[in-house]
Write a protein that binds this DNA or RNA. Sequence first.
DNA 1: CGAATTTGACCCGCGC
DNA 2: GCGCGGGTCAAATTCG
Length: 597
Amino acid sequence: MEVVSGRSGDGGGAVKEEGRSESGADDHDHEHGGGKEENIAIMKLPTLTTMERSIVGTATIAPSSIPSNQVDHELESARAEMGEVREENQRLKMYLDRITKEYQTLQVRFQNMKHQRDIVEESELVSLSLGRYQNYQKKDEPIITKPIITRPWKYEENKQDLSLGLDCKFESSSKSGGSTSNEPLPNSSPINSSEEPKGESGETRSQSDKALKTLRNSADDGHENSTPPKKARVCVRARCDTLTLNDGCQWRKYGQKVAKGNPCPRAYYRCTVAPLCPVRKQVQRCVHDMSILITTYEGTHNHPLPISATAMASTTSAAASMLLSGSSSSQSGPASATADLHGLNYYLSDSSKSKQFYLPNSSLSSSLSCPTITLDLTSIPSSQYLNRFLTSSSDYMNPPRFSSSNSNTLNFSSSESNTISWTNNTNFLSYGTTQPYKAINLGRQPPLMENSYQSYMQKSNPIISTPPQHNSLPADTIAAATKAITADPNFQSALAAALTSIIGQAGTQGNQTTGVANAGGENLSQKMKWGDLFPTISSALPSSSSKVNGCASSFLKKTQATNAVQPGNLMFLPPSLPFSTTKSTSASPRDNGDNTN
DNA sequence: CGAATTTGACCCGCGC
DNA sequence: GCGCGGGTCAAATTCG
């Protein structure tokens, strides 16, 4: 009765509104000119759509028990609603037009500014690169202090650089073939082809080695004269329950060595995304806290990075940028300085002999004479959240500790107690997780999938617990970080790099030809969706527990093989450890280390 | 069986 | 010059 007629009225109104938008504005006048409501339906029939007729007809032939004045009232109210909706529609159209015009205007401005910036700031791409900044500094010193955060329009130009992530374009020579990326490495050089055929034994080995050395030297000589500049390195410290950080790149292990001072073997990987990519990384567990994984990146990718790899690459690039900028400010000598940067400890030093601040007890090799920046992400509970940091610009609001060693130390550190609970933060921009790698990365999965050896160990030993959750970040720390970001151009640079990375990846995942404005807005929203859609790294990875390697795997293998392992939580307790005094915050067997070289 | 990993040997830079 | 230690190579081994 009333319900039926009410529905008819509402439904009819809605449909009529829809049809009316097509039929034009005549109906509006016609409608207002209507007299008796019973007649309205009949009068409007010529202009109504079929559906409208049926609905109106339904209303018209409603049971006679419905009072006619009630129908009139409902029709009138429906008509009023239609009018409102129509006005709203007009307003929205106006908004849309205005936004479109503004967008076009901005696009024009963007093109102009881009053109101008391209000319003026060509060399600023360096700021996202790893390497000896000094080389560029010679050319254009003032650039050092320029923040790049305000140049999203550089994205198209930077995209390649970002995709190269750990670029060190100006590193001209290195032992590891880290000369110019596009150059063929010694293996493919003609000299190699003149090498004696294989098959001989030791002599051939030595000859080939000599030839390689010769090649290296010749390659070096081709670029630099006597003393090749050391590579900049980015050392990432993160609590990681996996074997290596899942940085999205494909790595192949080519060596493992026990470094002095750390019983955990150091694993050497090289990038296999491209066959000649000279980028290397070293992975080693921290001697004092084996839940901390120390990953050192070095070299230049000579290929576009997988989507999932750009986050880490750009982050490390940003860190390198910070290092380089920081070094520029403290390059003058061995002096060190500390400053309170809006509540954050900002520490600059130039003690080339000093131990790495965040790498206590680790020996400093000659390789560490090269500039190294350490990204201390140990406040992040596990690698599962690392990518969120790496990919979420908002997470820069919770600054990790940036420290560079050797020549400089940048310590954007909130207090140690201000650990970050990433689970409590809104990582609404995060996307870099395992499943998107699978879904979006067109390449195959990295051969070395970082399987959670923790889960592996938990399978073996259910008593072992996960690392303790950290406290949530205090609000004042966030405020301090915000201040730091706004005050410090270096931080802005890092933030810009991360943002650009996100935009770039969004653009890569989406429409590559999308304009920058779209990349910054629309694709970010895409990212938000991806972040919501996909879970995090290691837990979703297919099991590759058989591929365990590195410290944990060695440890596992050897402990399981050599020790008459007791079931339970003692199975990972070797009898004596060189660092047995290590404080243990959990029952993690990593604290027991791997004393088996 | 091909690819990836392991591992011992080798090379080289640096300090003494 | 020698030894140490980091880094790399490549044959052997393992894995899928």
